[in-house]
């Protein structure tokens, strides 16, 4: 019993002596960035957010990143800490971070504004009341992919597509709905959709291999799990001369013949614009509508296109990415 009391006292003393402030007293605003895990896409979003703010207001803002490392318990602790700290705004990346922050702050009746980014279908999560006005302390950038446009481009550049294989992680928020949307679109186009569900990036090769022979195109959507392991899909598609179309712009550097998407940094910079509206102009989050990022860009990679059996005569010079 004595040991317990002693240890508790030590911790108590440490609590009160280590008063490291979360921000420098010279900074005008302190922003907490909450990210669910370590991933290149999330880091790009964070980078986009910070870079825009620093560019507009150099040396006036301090940023502290809270990375939950894929652990919801840790995320909860971090949100509690953000709630206690002297933060003017929270930038939440992803659905889980946004949802948990909103819930915790509402229960504690904290009015810290939350700007979210890369959240698919925020209405379905009850994050906001309406996309025009959230009716709470949240605003942000939703994640949207125009699958109709994406698949139209595909049908123009590769008309004879009978089978499309979609590789995705069904445990990520919003992807099941995306799959249903793609299913409806390809059904109208007379294309058979084959879905390959993966839960970890090291499963991609094993689970996709049985379907590669019979497919014409492999499609990867905005999916952190599959994007982490897209190299495996690139090798598979190169070997079997099948077209790989991805929704992450970085995938073209990894070997995808076609990409259709938005740079992750744009999610961050769009969110930063809203954050600045709140902090610099005093606009309430409820008065800032939820927006989508700018329309997707389309790029192809010439060498991979040939390898993955795609004719490139349709493309204009502007479409080509080196």
């Amino acid at each position: 019993m004595k040991k317990i009391i002693l240890i508790l006292c030590v911790f108590g003393v440490l609590f009160f002596t280590f008063k490291l402030s979360q921000s420098s007293p010279l900074k005008k605003f302190n922003i907490a960035i909450l990210t669910p895990t370590t991933h290149p896409s999330l880091e790009q979003i964070e980078r986009g957010f910070i870079d825009l703010i620093i560019k507009e207001y150099p040396n006036e803002y301090s940023f502290k990143t809270f990375n939950a490392l894929g652990n919801k318990t840790l995320m909860r602790t971090e949100i509690e800490e953000i709630g206690r700290g002297n933060y003017d705004l929270v930038f939440a990346i992803g659905a889980g971070a946004a949802q948990m922050s909103k819930e915790v702050f509402e229960k504690k009746q904290l009015m810290i504004p939350i700007v979210f980014s890369a959240v698919p279908k925020p209405l379905n999560l009850n994050l906001i009341a309406d996309e025009k006005s959230s009716q709470n302390t949240l605003t942000g950038v939703k994640e949207v992919t125009d699958f109709q446009r994406e698949l139209s481009i595909l049908s123009r550049i590769k008309p004879k597509v009978n089978t499309l294989t979609l590789v995705y992680d069904p445990t990520l928020h919003g992807l099941q709905e995306d799959r249903k949307e793609i299913e409806e679109i390809v059904a109208k186009m007379g294309i058979t959709l084959v879905c390959v569900e993966v839960f970890k990036s090291n499963e991609i090769l094993a689970k996709s291999s049985p379907f590669i022979e019979k497919t014409d195109v492999v499609l990867v959507i905005k999916d952190n799990t599959v994007v982490s392991g897209v190299d495996a899909l690139v090798k598979l598609c190169d070997r079997h001369h099948k077209l790989l179309m991805a929704s992450e712009l970085d995938s073209v550097d990894k070997g995808a013949a076609l990409v259709f998407g938005v740079s992750e940094t744009i999610y961050g910079s769009e969110a930063a614009k809203k954050a600045l509206l709140i902090l610099e102009n005093g606009v309430l989050p409820r008065d800032i509508p939820i927006t989508s990022p700018p329309p997707e860009e389309f790029y192809f990679r010439a060498d991979k296109a040939r390898l993955q059996a795609l004719g490139i005569e349709f493309f204009s010079k502007e479409d080509i990415r080196d």
Binding site: G70, K72, T73, R76, Q99, M100, E103, T171, H173
Partner: peptide, 20 residues
């Protein structure tokens, strides 16, 4: 209790529980 407190349940809430 955890999901009640956070307002949602998802498939990843169990990660890291054993180490905890």
């Amino acid at each position: 209790l955890f999901c009640l407190s956070n307002g949602f349940v998802d498939l990843t809430i169990g990660f890291g529980i054993i180490l905890l």
